[in-house]
Design a protein around this nucleic acid. Structure first.
Ligand code: FES
Ligand code: FES
Lengths: 148, 148
DNA sequence: TTTTATCCTACAAAACAGATAGGAAAAGTA
DNA sequence: TACTTTTCCTATCTGTTTTGTAGGATAAAA
């Protein structure tokens, strides 16, 4: 049970765009360098974020990629679904055909519950929250680890 | 982000043993049939459950596998850890060496939070809860789906 | 003694993750 | 205009993990 790197990099890409809200867009190259993601791999991440409507490339002066919404309006859940067709811990969760006794399966209900818990967590937090927290972390003085 | 079948089958195996608490143990063959798990695949599941100390084979009359603890005392989390070395959505979650700025990474904190939420869910529910719920589901009369 | 069940190790197909590679097309720049 | 850079698109590659199967040795039961 791991989160794939595309989802993780996708989030960090959006955080990068959100932080660099200096009027100008941001180029793939800079995102790659700042977030330490392979430039070529980032191709795929960006393509996915674009086709999900989370970012858009703008041209002209100040060209580069931009967020289509304000950071506070982008739930992490939105990023997650951009990289994972559905949030389903099991295939039979939403496809009743897969298991008989589907309607009377305590195990399925159990996983369904966990699924909801995860979904709520992802829906309750936005890219805005993440960059706020990141700023707070970075403004802390002194090399004090574990002081969270 | 999927739960692997071993974990799922492991839970169902324990549920099967928990329900069949008629004094006698239960044989691999019967578990496989009742839970519709490949007999040979179940070999691995059982081996893992044994080495994790969750079940034990008993011999003599009434031979078969038995739970080592009462169903209410087996958290689903225990089964999960039997089949997954650690519950870690990301490798860098517990291994600070993997990322620099590890101590000041809002993304890591975010995943850490989700990790805890999942962990708590798994720790709060037992095999006992699952079989109780299963019994309730099965005693419901009439083919009324979606009446949960 | 015969059958059945457990236990142990090796193997394999398939799916998936995590990239890399090459180049066309579009856009920016001098 | 020429050229350089950036975006965009598709294919390929490599290793790992998942989900099993197979075979047989060993132990137990009938
Ligand atoms: S409904 Fe799929 S495991 Fe029960
Ligand atoms: S600490 Fe690993 S992603 Fe930030």
């Amino acid at each position: 049970m791991k989160v794939n790197t595309k989802t993780r990099y996708g989030i960090r890409t959006l955080m990068e765009l959100a932080r660099n809200d200096s009027g100008a867009g941001m180029h793939q190259k800079d995102i790659a360098v700042n977030q330490d993601i392979s430039y070529k791999y980032l191709d795929h991440i960006i393509a996915q974020l674009k086709s999900s409507g989370l970012i858009v490339p703008v041209s002209g002066r100040k060209s580069g990629y931009r967020l289509t919404r304000k950071p506070e309006e982008i739930a992490v859940y939105d990023v997650f679904t951009a990289f994972n067709s559905t949030l389903a811990l099991l295939d039979c969760l939403f496809d009743g055909e897969l298991c008989e006794k589907h309607e009377r399966c305590a195990a399925r209900e159990f996983w369904d519950g966990l699924n909801s818990v995860i979904e709520n967590y992802l829906k309750d937090r936005t890219i805005g929250d993440l960059i706020d927290r990141q700023s707070a972390l970075e403004s802390q003085q002194g090399g004090l680890a574990y002081q969270i």
